[in-house]
Structure formats: structure tokens, C-alpha cells
Amino acid sequence: MSFINYSTREINCKIVYYGPGLCGKTANLQYIYDKTDPNLKGKMISLATETDRTLFFDFMPLKLGEIKGFKVRFHLYTVPGQVFYDASRKLILKGADGVVFVADSQMDRMDANLDSFDNLRDNLKEHGYDLDTIPLVLQYNKRDLPDIVPVKELEEALNFRGVKSFEAIAIKGVGVFETLKQIAKEIIIKLKG
């Protein structure tokens, strides 16, 4: 749910990074955080376990430029990917304006990608959203590793909507800003109506 404040002239939108455990969601946020001008970002908050697995969410506020005198802000969230944190995932998805689905390109994570994608559909539905219409961008991450699924196959398995998709190496930043820009674009275009 975008939030427009006419008295402070601000527009706030919420982007959620979704995907199976260890696919690189936190790595995306971390890279964005590291590369963004300090004046344009707030604190990155990671609610993680002692072994650095996301327990509840990562959060990072990002100030972009202005549209017609309105400051545009994006709040980026990641969900915990592990299957048993489903209740938390659902909570974070609430109020999302757009979703980045991060897939793990490794062969042996394909089932996890598909399960997570189905789970995204179910959880969106519970909030009254539709995976077929919500602003969505796909990211095929970990392209640097051996034994990865060809992009064509990933497209066939996940991209039934034909949305924009990006190959990425999140830890090196490859594809990270491209993905973010695209989802921001999709959200604003949707607001345009």
C-alpha cells in the first residue's frame, strides 16, 4: 500500500524480496546498502539468528529523487526464506507494493525455488493480492556458481507472466541495481493507473 503524505510531500512504497532460504535476498539488500550514498539511506536493520539467517526481516529505507516535488522513498524488506518461518513471511508481505522474486540458480535448489514461488502465490492471495497482477520482477541469482540451471529453463519454470528478469551475482552486485530499478519502475507505472 503506497503511502502519500501531502503535508510532508512524500511518497512511500514497500518492496519485498522473496525467495527460498539462502538464495541471496539479504545479499541484495546488503549490496544496495553498501553502494548507496549515506545521505540517501537510513539504517539497515537485520533481524537474524546467531548464524546470520534471516529470522524475521531485513529492512532498509531508501530515499530516491523527486517526482513533481514529491520525495520518493522505498522501504525494502526481505523475508526469511526457511520453510518453517511461513507465518512471519506472511506478515511482511502485507502492504507490499511490489515483489522481487530471487531464485537460486543452482540445480539442486530448483525444487526450493518452485516451492517458494507457490508459497508466494498463496501468501499474496491471503492478503487479497494476485501474483498475476502485482508488480513483480524475477532475479536469477548465483550465476557465478557451477551446476546452474540455464536461464531459458528458469524462465520456463518461473516466468509464466513474462515479466522482466535479471541474471545476478548478488554478492558482487551484478544485476542488483537493475533489479531494484525495474521493480521501482513497475510500481510507479502501476500507480500511474
Binding site: 550514498d37 531508501l62 529523487g65 541495481f177 521501482a184 519502475k185 507505472i189
Partner: peptide
């Protein structure tokens, strides 16, 4: 708003 307006939002580093 135009595509350019949207692109201009992203002068944030990166």
C-alpha cells in the same frame, strides 16, 4: 510522468 522522470529517481550511487 514519463520514463525519464522515473530514471531520474535513481541517481543514488550504485
Amino acid at each position: 510522468i514519463t520514463e525519464d522522470d522515473i530514471d531520474n529517481l535513481f541517481n543514488i550511487g550504485g
